[in-house]
Simulated assay, not measured.
Amino acid sequence: MSKICEYYFAPHSPFAYLGHARLTALAKQYGVQIVLKPFDLSKIFPISGGLPLAKRSPQRQAYRLQELQRWSAYLEQPLNLQPTYFPVHSDDAAKLIIATQLAHGTQAALDLTAAIMRGVWAEEKNIADTDTLIAMATALGYDGKTLLKSAETVSVEAEFVRFTDEAIAANVFGAPWYIVDGEGYWGQDRLDFVERAFAK
């Protein structure tokens, strides 16, 4: 039985974007199954002591931009520090990812996640816009309109709520968050430790 990595993320997270390609590559390298769990980060902050970006101190906001610039350069991964459509409501994008997973499987959902994250941070796309989401899914070869309708169903909403509840129960307080063998790792800068856990 292959090892499992629970992958908690918010589609609009820049650090999730920076780590997504590396996580999927590592999972493929070590034969690890990724279980995608897009969740509502806004529900996590009030109970974990975190603050939305706009409410953080100027020092923290400035350092966040430095870190994003450093990692973007280090990974040679394009990232716009001040994207046009950010902050952005990402619940619809998360639910579209869930609907894609249910209809087409994990790889399709991972590919769509990559496209959505890239859309925010490198392509100036508005992931709160339904037409944009439809176009992203369609570009990957899926029926974007049908998937969006599925994303609006009660069953998909229930999955989104369940993932958020599971994140709370697992003491998740940020995104991305990876759980391997019951141990949590916060942030794409912990992927070296995630790899060690994959290799055990």
Score class of each variant (00 low, 15 high):
V172M: 02
A151T: 00
L147N: 00
A93F: 05
Y17K: 08
L53I: 15
D92F: 06
E157H: 13
N126A: 03
A54H: 10
F15G: 02
R196S: 05
T164E: 14
K145E: 15
T113W: 04
E183P: 01
I97E: 00
A137Q: 08
P38G: 03
A73K: 13
G119F: 04
A170K: 14
D91A: 15
Q59G: 09
E159C: 14
L133K: 08
P83F: 04
L23F: 12
S72I: 05
A115S: 14
A169M: 07
G174P: 06
P11G: 02
L41Q: 09
D165E: 15
Y178Q: 03
F163D: 03
A54M: 11
K145S: 15
L65S: 11
K37F: 07
G184S: 09
F193R: 09
A128L: 05
A10S: 15
V35G: 02
Q33I: 10
T153D: 07
I168C: 02
Q61A: 12
R70C: 01
R60H: 12
A99C: 04
L51A: 07
Y30P: 02
T146K: 12
R70K: 09
E6Y: 02
Y74E: 13
F86H: 14
S72G: 15
M1L: 11
A10Q: 04
R162E: 12
P78I: 06
T164Y: 13
Y142H: 14
G182V: 01
Y30V: 01
Y85H: 15
P83M: 09
L110M: 12
D40Y: 10
V35M: 06
A128Q: 06
A10L: 10
H20G: 06
A158V: 00
L102Y: 09
T146L: 11
T130L: 13
D129K: 08
V194R: 07
Q77W: 04
V156Q: 01
A175N: 10
H104M: 04
F160L: 02
A199E: 06
R118L: 12
K125E: 09
E67L: 05
A54T: 10
A103K: 10
D129V: 07
D131Q: 15
K125G: 02
T106Q: 13
S57L: 11
I179C: 00
T113F: 08
S57T: 14
L36R: 06
G187R: 00
R162M: 08
Q77H: 13
A170E: 11
W121E: 13
E183V: 13
G19K: 05
E166H: 09
T153N: 09
D181T: 10
Q69N: 13
V35H: 08
I47V: 15
T138R: 10
G141Y: 01
A93Y: 09
A108G: 04
L18A: 03
L36Y: 06
S72R: 01
K3T: 13
F193M: 11
A93P: 04
L81D: 11
A169P: 08
I44A: 00
Y7F: 15
E152G: 03
Q107T: 13
A54D: 10
D131R: 11
R22Q: 15
R190L: 06
W121M: 06
R60D: 12
A175Y: 04
I134E: 10
V154L: 13
L147S: 00
I44D: 00
R22K: 14
L23Y: 09
I179L: 11
D165L: 11
K55R: 05
I179D: 06
Y178N: 03
D111C: 03
F193E: 05
T138E: 15
G49A: 01
S57D: 14
